[in-house]
Design a binder for these strands. Structure first.
Lengths: 240, 240
DNA sequence: GCGGTTTTTGAGGCACACCTAAAGATAAGG
DNA sequence: CCTTATCTTTAGGTGTGCCTCAAAAACCGC
């Protein structure tokens, strides 16, 4: 049943790791079934490549997949994904806090390194960094045992007018977003107040005296705020 | 002339980098012609693999090779080799000084990472470490411009009876050697006095009161001492 | 100039991941 | 229920990179 083809591929293949990570990522901040075409789009490969690769993941016991059905991870698949995510985020943290990278510069480097470093390296790095709970973009770093604590967070495009809160996470996929935030002095944990103009773009209020900052649609999909409370008037209170 | 076959291989291929590094390593601490069979032995591949790969290096302008002749690096080949050596040694230094690895544990990890990290990473790491002149095994770290300062050093099996000096470098190829030195409390820069018993193995004297330490042939090929002066009596003086 | 060693050539294999094109399954609407 | 548009799978094939074995060719010391 399992292993009907050669199945020489191992858990150490960077492709396998990338697929597993991509499947995991799909459900990390949203609840959507992972279909072959969605995976293909995310990984920039043809649909048929996904079919083939997923069959290998199934052989390796990492994924579950009924023909024409959605794709999901097994327990060990999830464990592998979490291990990769842990690596990625610890490495990003290291690059920023120890080597002085900007938070917009770390993604690609981490993407490479996560496949290369040993488990011992990860363990030592974690200790060196003081077991950080989250990475430079606010993403929680899974513990060595695979447990993760996700902070309550809402994507900006799902937040109603007048809510206030702290910037909990920023998607690291678009460096441009990160540089935009840098330009406006917005970092993790910044206090934000959300205002919807009538039909106009969402605006962020950064403080009582700061001017409103209009943000485009891409931004609202990249920013997540937490500790949200409805505001009264236009005064920022301490939302948390 | 150049590029007579497909030659799509690039300077980023880990194999290319390993071959170039291996060719460089041959002449780093000795003066021997690099023949195909020696390269094959060092890289654990068949002779014919070396012939093929060296042809690619020639196409890439990294190596020079007349049929049936010895193999040497071009200027850009040497530059690539030095860049790889720099990466390797900086990474080893990082692993030891920042992550607490033992000097016997870093070689393999560095061997992987050196192919993965970016130039920016190397530059930042170098700065973070304070531009160290040598790695944990005493090997000099090439500067970013490719310059290297080799300390005068003599391999122990070429040192006559009665010479004294500091431990300048230890080959990192055999972790067992490094652990042996650890067990006896010998680190880089340790003062050593060399004594040849009649027909018996070489002995090291570590200090006026310490007992002589017999070392086997493998050890004498892994240890390099510098600042060598003939000793008088059995008293250790400051050799440098 | 001969024999042993080294090197090169040639032919081939294998792992891995990808693609295109065509065929098959599914699901939504009429 | 059937049609149609969409998604997914199959089949066949490409390309890279590196390796092997076996045989032919060159080299070198005697």
């Amino acid at each position: 049943m399992a292993g009907r083809r050669g199945a020489v591929l191992s858990i150490e293949s960077t492709s396998v790791q990338d697929y597993v990570k991509a499947i995991y990522a799909f459900t990390e901040w949203q609840d959507a079934a992972v279909t072959a075409s969605r995976l293909a789009a995310r990984l920039s490969v043809a649909n048929s490549s996904v079919t083939g690769m997923v069959a290998k993941l199934v052989d390796l016991g990492l994924a579950e997949h009924r023909k024409y059905g959605p794709i999901s991870l097994t327990t060990s698949g999830r464990a592998l994904a979490l291990a990769m995510v842990r690596r990625h985020r610890l490495i990003e943290t290291f690059l920023v806090t120890e080597l002085g990278y900007g938070w917009d510069e770390v993604h690609d480097e981490a993407e490479q390194l996560e496949h290369t470093v040993s488990d011992a390296f990860v363990a030592r790095l974690d200790a060196k960094l003081g077991r950080p709970p989250r990475d430079p973009h606010g993403d929680p770093i899974p513990a060595a045992d695979g447990s993760v604590a996700y902070p309550p967070a809402y994507r900006l495009d799902g937040v109603d007018d007048g809510h206030a809160g702290r910037l909990v996470r920023v998607s690291d996929e678009d460096p441009g977003v990160l540089r935009f935030l840098d330009r406006h002095g917005i970092g993790l944990d910044a206090h934000l107040l959300v205002r919807h103009g009538a039909g106009s773009p969402v605006e962020l209020l950064l403080g009582p005296s700061a001017p409103a900052l209009p943000v485009d649609a891409a931004l609202t999909r990249a920013l997540w705020i937490g500790g949200s409370v409805p505001h009264e008037g236009c005064t920022l209170r301490n939302p948390l």
